[in-house]
């Protein structure tokens, strides 16, 4: 079985977001693997380790220009075997999914994992879009994946609970909370090995985005908190002023 994890390169989640000339200001920003994708990769590597020999390889793919490579190296240091980089700046969900669909045309991954959303533009769409463009199955709200013999068992969150599924491969799984608890931290050996692992750079198709962000704004400063002394005052404010209790 071959697993591919889609990763994106995002600013560290504690970054103070600023804009300059109507673009995200990258000055001094630390870049990381999108946290959800990092957990997806962690799970893929856990499966590979647990079921020795069943999983041939775990690869990662990213749509990014060359400046995304340090983040790809981090994924390789975590333990991914190889990487694909589609050489273009990611624009919108559609163009990213379409570039990936093209780059993966001749590949034979059985399972493609991707995190619920990227912590920057919060698009939430690349995984299921890619499945549609590739004509394969997709499952969203995936909170667990296990191997049972040669079969994958997918845990999906549903309204008020969860279900365990058998999904026909190949498929895209959009993963969320529960998929893995703590991201795998690369060790020294992993970091050294990562330097020699291949990153296959694929030329982009230059697919036009369908959505464009034209203007950014920071949230308006909100009025200061109204502090009160007693529980009674608080309940009364919520009842009389806010009218919510």
């Amino acid at each position: 079985m071959k697993i591919l994890v889609l990763i994106s390169n995002v600013p560290d989640t504690t970054t103070k977001v600023k804009f300059k000339d109507n673009e995200f200001d990258k000055t001094g920003v630390q870049w990381i693997i999108n946290p959800w994708d990092e957990l997806a990769l962690t799970r893929a590597l856990e499966l590979k380790k647990a079921a020795a020999g069943k999983i041939e390889k775990v690869a990662v793919a990213m749509v990014a220009e060359k400046d995304g490579e340090p983040t790809i190296r981090k994924a390789l240091a975590m333990g991914a075997d190889e990487a694909i980089r589609v050489d273009t700046k990611p624009k919108d969900s559609y163009s990213v999914a379409a570039e990936l669909a093209e780059a993966l045309k001749d590949q034979d991954f059985d399972l493609i994992l991707v995190g619920l959303e990227s912590s920057d533009y919060n698009g939430l769409s690349v995984g299921a879009m890619l499945a549609e463009l590739m004509g394969i199955n997709s499952v969203s709200a995936v909170s667990g994946i296990d191997l049972d013999g040669d079969k994958l068992i997918v845990k999906r969150e549903i309204d008020g609970g969860y279900e365990k599924l058998d999904v026909q491969m190949p498929f895209v799984a959009v993963v969320q909370k529960g998929i893995a608890i703590v991201p795998l931290i690369p060790n020294m050996r992993g970091i050294m090995q990562a330097k020699r692992k291949p990153i296959n750079v694929v030329a982009a198709q230059n697919i036009e985005p369908l959505v464009e962000m034209v203007e950014y704004e920071l949230p308006k400063p909100k009025p200061p908190v109204k502090l009160v002394e007693t529980a009674e005052e608080l309940i009364n404010l919520l009842h009389i002023e806010a009218k919510v209790l």
Binding site: T15, L210, M213, E217, L218
Partner: peptide, 12 residues
Amino acid sequence: VFTGKAFAKTVV
């Protein structure tokens, strides 16, 4: 966008 840290005017 940025998990609530900013707003983006988005054009389709």
